[in-house]
Amino acid sequence: MEAGESLLFLLRERVGLPGSKNACEQGECGSCTVYLDGTPVCACLVAAGQAQGCEVVTVEGLADGDELHPVQEAFVEAGAVQCGFCTPGLLVAVHDLLARCDDPDEPQIREALAGNLCRCTGYEKIFDAVRLAAGRSR
């Protein structure tokens, strides 16, 4: 590993966890959002060396075996997945949002997800998925 490379590169190319996505590699799209010691960050903006000794949870870590996490299930059911390239980052961001607030209103959802670009859905079904998952978790 080269310590100056990004955590995203480390995950995708060295560790074999390509679930976190590489859409912009400059923190503008959120498709590489992962938890770093419990905090959602853009993996592309973390130097690999900075993550040493930290707990990293990626989209691959959300499901419980065969059982999808309720946020994942809500994305599937609501039609929030089209091409799906933004989905891994959004799932982590929504997972975090609902962990902090179990009943976010629309402006809260919009502000919380402003860093996750989606080019397919116009976000509407993503908001539906957030509300669906929130309703079920309450």
Partner: peptide, 23 residues
């Protein structure tokens, strides 16, 4: 019907292989 996408499970798990994930 608004049938479930057959590729959606893999996509939400991060298991769906995009061309940039090929190895």
């Amino acid at each position: 019907a608004s049938a479930r996408r057959p590729d959606a499970d893999a996509k939400v798990r991060g298991d769906f292989a995009y061309s940039s994930d090929l190895w």
